[in-house]
Simulated scan of single mutants.
Amino acid sequence: MADFGQPFEVRSPASSANLGPGFDSLGLSVPLYTTLRVTPQARTEVVPLGAELEGTPADESNYVYRAMLLSARRAGLTLPPARVEIETEVPLARGLGSSAAALVAGIVAGNILLGKPLGDETLLDVAAREEGHPDNVAPALYGGIVVATLDKLGTHHVRLEPPDHLGVTVLIPDFELSTSKARAVLPTEYSRADAVHALSHSALLAAALATGRLDLLQHAMQDYIHQIWRAPLVPGLSDILEEAHKHGALGAALSGAGPTVLCFHDTRHDTARLHSFLGSVMKRNGLEGRILDLPIDTQGTLVRAL
Rank of each mutant, 00 (worst) to 15 (best):
A220N: 02
A220H: 00
A257V: 11
Q222R: 15
A231F: 11
L254F: 13
M221Q: 15
L217Q: 12
A253M: 07
A220Q: 03
E242W: 07
G248M: 13
E243P: 01
K283I: 02
H226R: 05
P259E: 08
D239P: 00
Y224C: 01
T260E: 04
D223C: 09
A244D: 03
D215A: 14
N285K: 13
L262V: 11
R284W: 14
I225A: 08
L214K: 04
I225H: 12
F277G: 10
T211N: 15
L214F: 05
Q218C: 15
V281H: 15
K246E: 10
D270E: 15
G286F: 09
A244K: 03
W229V: 03
W229C: 00
M282Q: 07
T211W: 01
M221K: 09
L250M: 10
L254M: 14
T271M: 07
M282V: 05
G258T: 01
T267N: 01
T260D: 03
L274Q: 14
P232D: 05
D266K: 14
D223H: 11
G251V: 03
L214V: 07
L250A: 12
D266A: 14
F264S: 02
H226C: 07
T271I: 13
F277L: 12
H219L: 05
E242S: 14
G256M: 03
E288M: 08
I240Q: 10
G279R: 12
L250V: 07
G236D: 03
Q227D: 01
T271F: 12
D239T: 14
G251D: 06
R213V: 06
Y224F: 04
T267V: 01
G258R: 00
L216E: 13
C263R: 08
L216C: 09
Q222H: 09
G251C: 06
A253F: 13
V261I: 13
S238K: 07
H265S: 00
I228W: 05
S255V: 06
A253D: 02
G236M: 06
F264N: 05
R268F: 04
I228M: 08
R284V: 10
W229P: 02
H275P: 06
E288A: 12
T267W: 00
T271P: 03
R268T: 11
P235V: 09
Q227A: 06
G212E: 14
N285C: 12
G286K: 01
G256Q: 04
Q218E: 15
Q222F: 00
C263H: 05
I228Y: 08
D215H: 14
L214G: 08
G236S: 08
Q227G: 08
L241V: 13
L237D: 04
M221V: 04
I240L: 12
E243R: 12
L250D: 11
H269W: 02
L237S: 13
L274T: 12
L250S: 08
T260F: 00
Y224A: 03
L278V: 06
A249V: 14
A253I: 09
R213K: 11
R268I: 02
F264T: 07
D266T: 03
H265M: 02
L233V: 05
L250F: 06
I225Y: 08
D215F: 10
D215E: 12
I225K: 01
E242N: 12
L250K: 02
S255A: 14
P235H: 11
